[in-house]
Design a protein around this nucleic acid. Structure first.
Lengths: 225, 225
DNA sequence: GCAAATTAATGATTTATTCAAG
DNA sequence: CTTGAATAAATCATTAATTTGC
């Protein structure tokens, strides 16, 4: 439905609408995604999620971002409390089980080689100067050697998606989702998207006058190198 | 063109460009801005800064954002160390002096009324659906009642600019800078800018087909209120 | 002088904490 | 009381300074 117009109206009329109120569908979808292992969606993922969930009501990228941020944190602290109560002793390699039983948590993490991971993608720069910062997702941190034995299903899908295009939304196997959108670390990427792109927009406005007002998540592969 | 060239240059010289290396000019400008009181520039401020600093080399919004984030934090911890060494006892209302002697730190902060500050601007939404999330800058937290007696020159200019249009860049007294750009809380706003704008753009693209790819920093006074 | 090796700065991310709307 | 939103603190990782041995 067009809750968008309604909300814009509402906001324009001074009504607070100061905070996003997710619909049931939106929440359940987000929870599903979380269960599938999404922890910190990157720009393209968020873009996708927003696009899909917009069908159920107004939603913005930051809402999605914050939702995952908060959900992750609160699941974690919930877990912490639980474990505290149970007082289990062998808290070594089996975290996250109580949280999401649905996701496969491969034993791929912890104690890998020191800094061997993060060269998945070479730094790539888009023609418009929108560099896609790349790489460092969060895995190498967990695998680093420090004892961050928190959750560890972090980017299971981020990595698998390189191979099989992860079914973020069962409805749309549109691929995209990953790979070329280049693992940009969520927040900063938006930043760059919002700001630098705008400047880029009036710099070479003729580049994509079509319907990509700020960034092409999809073409970014072949730049000008 | 200029900034791209610089970066391309850098890349050609074998530098991996995995991280932004500010030029001298960029740094000094940023430091000046900081001294002028800018702590957490919002989207429009960042946009402006980027536009200006692009003349000196490649730079993106996120770079500016992170720079302020880091600089603020590190100045703060530097200060903390200093104070620790001095062991001054009457730490009550005179923070931030050691950091930036150039900025006027009015005694306007701490112990104001509880939540009186952040209603400077009513939530405003641009026609394109790019809501400018608004408000909460960071001041209300400091002034709130909690004892965050850290710095407090936070948005001195944010407030003064309401009256006298703060000279962010001596070169360009273009005003803008504040007021109407509605104090959007930095990060999230980019997020929204990057994501929501795109989706919104093809929803009602006809809103501002002119040359305002996502926000008009300059005209924003008479939006559609 | 100069590169390899160390150290210091600092750019970039993630996590924790806090505020406040509903 | 729950949770969306925002900021600050902590942390990681890379670049620049610098030291060191030749």
């Amino acid at each position: 439905m067009e809750s968008e117009a309604a909300e814009v109206e509402m906001r324009r009329r001074g009504h607070s609408v100061s905070r996003w109120s997710p619909t049931k569908e939106q929440i359940s979808t987000l929870e599903n995604l979380y269960k599938q292992g999404i922890r910190t969606p990157n720009a393209s993922q968020i873009q996708h999620i927003v696009t899909r969930l917009s069908a159920y009501g107004h939603i913005e990228g930051k809402n999605v971002f914050y939702w995952f941020q908060n959900h992750k944190a609160r699941q974690r602290q919930k877990l912490k409390l639980k474990q505290q109560n149970v007082g289990s002793s062998n808290h070594f390699l089996h975290a996250s089980q109580p949280i999401c039983q649905n996701v496969v948590c491969g034993p791929y993490c912890l104690q890998q080689s020191g800094t061997g991971f993060y060269s998945q993608q070479p730094p790539k720069v888009l023609a418009s100067g929108v560099s896609s910062s790349i790489v460092t997702f969060g895995l190498q941190r967990m695998c680093d050697g420090s004892q961050r034995n928190e959750l560890l299903q972090q980017d299971y899908n981020s990595r698998t998606s390189n191979h099989k295009a992860l079914t973020l939304f069962p409805l749309h196997p549109t691929s995209i989702l990953e790979e070329k959108s280049s693992q940009v670390p969520s927040l900063a990427s938006f930043c760059e998207g919002a700001i630098d792109t705008s400047s880029a927009a009036h710099i070479n406005e003729d580049a994509h006058p079509e319907n990509l007002p700020f960034f092409d998540f999809f073409t970014s592969s072949h730049v000008s190198d």
